[in-house]
Amino acid sequence: MKKVYIIALLTISSLALSQEKNVSVEKSVFNIQTGFVGFWANNELKLAKSIVLRSEIGIEPIWLVGDGTVWHPNFRLEPRYYYNLEKRVEKGYPINNNSGNFFGIALNYRPDAVVFSNNKDLKTIESISFVPKWGIRRNFGNHFNYEAGFGFGFRHEFKYKNYGEFDIHLRIGYTF
């Protein structure tokens, strides 16, 4: 009888250890998202057990009081560290499609290009920004997700000055 208990204990502990090893971000996740302002397509590529590299292209507006609106492209690279995946699995919450809390460092490039404007004389300002941020990503259904995050960082406009930049986002999307 002792042998049966020992075998059962070893089996249960080996299953528990094997489940811990399987807690990881997805190999590759492709999304389209929209928020209050803008549209984005992105991919999260697994680099390590809890780290992804998010590459993203989007169209975002700039509102100029009295002059109109300019829609411009934004290119982003953002390494993300999903820090609570094991805790979510322990509590029985899903982690599919990288559902979890994350820390990221967003590197944005906004070229001097206009996609659409209601004033043909308006131009955009070429800039780069570096923004550490915190956020959450959750899924509902098999393919839908929402994401919220915020951060504060540094923005450099090539023709002008350097600024502080807030990055606050709330998006809903679809995962392929």
Results as ranks from 00 to 15, higher is better:
3 K>D: 08
5 Y>S: 11
5 Y>D: 02
8 A>G: 03
12 I>P: 02
19 Q>E: 06
23 V>N: 09
24 S>K: 15
25 V>E: 01
29 V>P: 00
29 V>E: 00
33 Q>V: 01
34 T>F: 04
34 T>G: 15
35 G>L: 15
36 F>T: 15
38 G>T: 05
38 G>H: 08
42 N>S: 15
42 N>D: 12
42 N>H: 12
46 K>Q: 09
47 L>D: 03
49 K>L: 04
51 I>M: 05
53 L>S: 13
58 G>I: 05
59 I>T: 03
67 D>Q: 13
68 G>T: 03
69 T>V: 15
70 V>I: 14
71 W>D: 08
73 P>W: 12
75 F>A: 13
79 P>T: 01
79 P>R: 11
81 Y>V: 06
83 Y>M: 07
83 Y>N: 07
84 N>Q: 05
86 E>C: 00
86 E>L: 01
94 P>H: 10
95 I>G: 07
97 N>P: 00
98 N>Y: 01
109 Y>G: 08
110 R>L: 04
111 P>M: 06
112 D>N: 15
119 N>W: 11
127 S>E: 04
129 S>Q: 09
129 S>E: 04
130 F>G: 15
130 F>I: 15
131 V>D: 02
135 G>I: 00
136 I>R: 10
136 I>N: 08
138 R>T: 01
139 N>V: 05
141 G>K: 00
144 F>N: 11
145 N>P: 01
145 N>A: 05
147 E>T: 10
147 E>G: 05
148 A>W: 08
149 G>H: 12
150 F>N: 11
150 F>W: 14
151 G>M: 07
152 F>C: 06
154 F>C: 02
154 F>D: 01
155 R>K: 15
156 H>R: 14
158 F>H: 00
159 K>Y: 04
162 N>C: 08
162 N>H: 04
163 Y>F: 11
164 G>F: 13
166 F>V: 13
169 H>P: 02
170 L>D: 00
171 R>D: 00
172 I>E: 04
